[in-house]
């Protein structure tokens, strides 16, 4: 068995070349064509109307001014002034970009490798492995909003667990993990890691189980250390899973809205692009043009990893 076969299990599950026998549309009856058309058409319509057209509408709105009240005829043209405003004048914008970046780097450098490490260790036929897996995986079941609430109980300066352990809860020198601008981003990242590492662990473990054991054995017989086996043999053949994990890390970093919103609405050191979009959409101070300009920036930033990921995923299919 080649390395390739070991990690591309479609060769295991479905070795046959199926394409030639797949039904071509021409040969279908009219009823069948209609049924098939609806089966594809209705979901596509939903997807187009509720995801893609609104995305385009966000871009459109970013060139206008509107307080969101009344009908869209109240929109006046604003040219690129919303963009000049966010780039040059809006004090929260660049911090938000920076925080999104820190979020990404932290997940990529700390949380994701922690998940990979846990997976690699658990792959070593550890005793009680299922118990460990269950524990690490538990937070993945929780919403980020709820994680914000739970960690508030850990982080609170007056009654939180950490400050209580340090004996400074409620005292002037107590540490307010979510309120202190200089540390709340890191506190939130720890909370997010609690969930993210388990997520990565489970995906990576699934991938590791698929790696041909004989490869590892061969390496071990050659006297390779565990580290060498991992970096030289396992990691390279795990390429598809690595891509998935990288993309998930990027997407999670862009999607961390729920957590910061529940902590403090995405203000005071926890500004993120997604939270700024929402801050400009809700409240009395609606400024939909500015909100949409930020949404457009976020859209562009999100499309980069999405396109990379999809082109990798579907390249094979397309060349079929």
């Amino acid at each position: 068995m080649t390395v390739d076969q070991a990690v591309r299990p479609e060769t295991i599950t479905a070795p046959r070349e199926r394409r030639p026998t797949r039904k071509r549309l021409k040969t279908l009856s009219t009823t069948d064509k209609v049924v098939l058309g609806m089966m594809v058409g209705i979901p596509t319509l939903i997807e187009a109307c509720l995801i893609w057209l609104p995305s385009l509408a966000s871009i459109g709105l970013s060139f206008g001014r509107w307080d969101g009240i009344g009908s869209p005829t109240n929109i006046t043209s604003a040219g690129i002034s919303n963009y000049t405003y966010i780039f040059t004048n809006y004090p929260s914008f660049w911090p938000a970009v920076l925080h999104n970046l820190i979020w990404l780097v932290f997940l990529a450098v700390i949380a994701t490798p922690l998940g990979v490490l846990l997976a690699v260790l658990l792959d070593r036929k550890i005793r009680f492995t299922r118990i460990y897996q269950s524990i690490f995986f538990l937070p993945v079941m929780l919403s980020l909003a709820l994680i914000g609430i739970i960690w508030q109980l850990i982080y609170s300066s007056d009654n939180g667990l950490i400050d209580s352990l340090l004996g400074i809860a409620g005292k002037p020198q107590s540490i307010d993990f979510f309120g202190d601008k200089s540390i709340n981003l890191w506190a939130a990242l720890v909370a997010q890691t609690w969930r993210h590492a388990g997520y990565v662990m489970i995906l990576y473990l699934a991938g590791l189980k698929g790696v041909d054991l004989s490869l590892k054995e061969a390496a071990a017989l050659d006297g390779a250390t565990a580290w060498q086996t991992f970096t030289r043999i396992v990691f390279p053949v795990m390429k598809p899973i690595n891509t998935v994990v990288i993309v998930i890390t990027i997407i999670e970093a862009l999607r961390s809205f729920d957590l910061v919103y529940i902590i403090n609405g995405g203000t005071n050191g926890l500004e993120l692009l997604s939270a700024l979009v929402v801050r400009n959409l809700q409240g009395e101070g609606q400024d939909l043009g500015v909100g949409s300009a930020i949404a457009t920036v976020l859209l562009v930033l999100s499309l980069v990893p999405i396109i990379i990921y999809l082109s990798r995923t579907f390249r094979k299919d397309r060349t079929e």
Partner: peptide
Amino acid sequence: LPAFAADVMEPALQ
């Protein structure tokens, strides 16, 4: 103006 109070002044005071 509500938009000013909420989006500009309150964060600036923080």
